[in-house]
Design a protein around this nucleic acid. Structure first.
Lengths: 208, 208
DNA sequence: CTCTGTGAAATTTTTCACAGCG
DNA sequence: CGCTGTGAAAAATTTCACAGAG
C-alpha cells in the first residue's frame, strides 16, 4: 500500500506518513509501497505492544465494568488482572472472570501480579486516595478517569482521561459551523474525521 | 494569580500561559496577575460552555450507562436527552432519569429534542450502522467510543475515543523508564502529570 | 517593583520536491 | 516508471526577553 493511500485512510499528508515511518526504519519498497502486515508488526514492536502489561482497575462502577469488559485491551497487550472496590458489598462479586477485591489487598495483589498500570475509575472524591495507594503499592503508571486533578510523586506517570473534552471539541466546531459566535483571533484546527470518508472526500483538516 | 503559578499548576511554561490567554483578550492586570473567576468565565464563554448541548447516547451497555451517569457533562453544558438501544429487552428500562428508547425512534426524538451530538457506545459491529442513522436523523457531531473506524459524510464532525490509547502511551514511557528497549531516533515527549505535584516539583514535561 | 502582553528568536512540526531504488 | 526516503523550505508552536502598565 502506498503512503498516499495510507495517508488518505488516516486523514493526513502522504509526506507525513513517509517521514514518520522513516523514523522506524526503511520498511517500504520504492516503486511499490509498504507491506501493511510487516508495518503493523514493526509498529507494534516499536510501541511495545508485544509486551504484556498487567492492569488493575480500581472502582467497579459502570465505567470500571465497561473498562473491565472492553475488548481490544487484550489485543494490545493490556491484561486486566485485578478489580478493586472500596464498597464491601461489591467485594467478592464477579465481573467477567475476575472477582472484585478489597482495596486493602491492593499492595499484596499488585506486587504478586506485577501490576504495571493502575486505572482509577472511582468517583472524584476517592481518586487521590486511590492514587496514593497505587503509588504505595509500587504502581508507576496511572490512568485517571475520575473528573478531578490528582497528583503523584515524580517518577510516576499519570494521565487523565476527561470524557467531556471530546464533547467540548465537537461542540466548539459545531458552534463555528452554525455561526454561533464566530470571532477572530482564535486558533483553528478542524474536528477530525478519522478513517476513510464514505463520500471519498478527504476530511477537511482545517477550518477557514 | 500570576501566569507563573497558573503555568506551574498546568505543567507548562509561563510564557505559554500568557501568550495563549492573550488570544482571548487582555484579561490580566500587570503587576498583579489574573482574576481566576473572571478568567474561567471568559474561557467558558469562548469555548461555548455556556451553550446548551442536547446529547443522545446510542448503546446502553456498561459504557453507555457510565456515560449516562457521568457527572461533569452537565457542568459543561452537555445534557443527556435520550438513550437508545437496539436490544428490545432493554427498551423501556430506565437508566437514571431516562427510559431507553428503540433505535427506530431516533429520527423523531433527535429532531424534536434538537440533538446536537450523538455518542456511539455500541459494540464495534453496530457502530457504522448507528453512525448512518445518526447522520440521517440530522445529527452533525458524533463521538465514537466503539473500537472501529466509522465514516461519515463531509459536513459531519466525527471524533473517536480509543480507551486503549492512553494505556499505550503510559506503557510506552514505562518501558523507557525500565530501559525495556531503548533505542534512538524515536521522538520523545513525556507522559504528562497533570496538576500540581504533591512533592512540589514540576512534572518533567520532556524525557531526555 | 511586579507581572502582563507581545515582538522576536528558537525550536519543532509539517510539507515540499526530487534523487534514486526496485 | 512509481513510489520511497529525506534534505531543505515553510509553517506552526513555544520560549525568550523586555517595554511598559498598574
Amino acid at each position: 500500500m502506498s503512503s498516499e493511500r495510507l495517508a488518505e485512510l488516516a486523514g493526513v499528508n502522504a509526506a507525513k506518513v513517509r517521514k514518520d515511518l522513516s523514523y522506524l526504519g526503511s520498511y517500504g519498497t520504492r516503486g511499490v509501497g509498504y507491506d501493511v502486515g510487516y508495518l503493523l508488526h514493526e509498529i507494534s514492536r516499536e510501541l511495545g505492544l508485544t509486551h504484556d502489561w498487567p492492569v488493575a482497575i480500581v472502582g467497579v462502577g459502570n465505567l470500571g465494568q465497561a473498562l473491565a469488559n472492553y475488548r481490544g485491551f487484550g489485543a494490545r497487550g493490556f491484561r486486566i488482572v485485578a478489580l478493586f472496590d472500596a464498597d464491601p458489598r461489591k467485594v467478592g462479586r464477579k465481573v467477567g472472570e475476575h472477582a472484585i477485591q478489597a482495596l486493602e489487598d491492593l499492595p499484596e495483589v499488585a506486587r504478586r501480579g506485577r501490576v504495571a498500570i493502575g486505572i482509577i475509575a472511582t468517583p472524584a472524591p476517592a481518586a487521590q486516595e486511590v492514587a496514593d495507594r497505587l503509588v504505595d503499592a509500587g504502581v508507576t503508571s496511572i490512568l485517571n478517569f475520575a473528573p478531578t486533578v490528582v497528583s503523584v510523586p515524580s517518577g510516576v506517570s499519570l494521565r487523565k482521561v476527561d470524557l467531556a473534552i471530546e464533547l467540548q471539541i465537537l461542540s466548539f466546531y459545531q458552534r463555528r459551523r452554525d455561526g454561533g459566535a464566530a470571532r477572530d483571533g482564535v486558533a483553528l484546527d478542524g474536528a477530525k474525521s478519522d478513517g476513510p470518508r464514505r463520500d471519498g472526500r478527504a476530511a477537511s483538516a482545517r477550518a477557514r
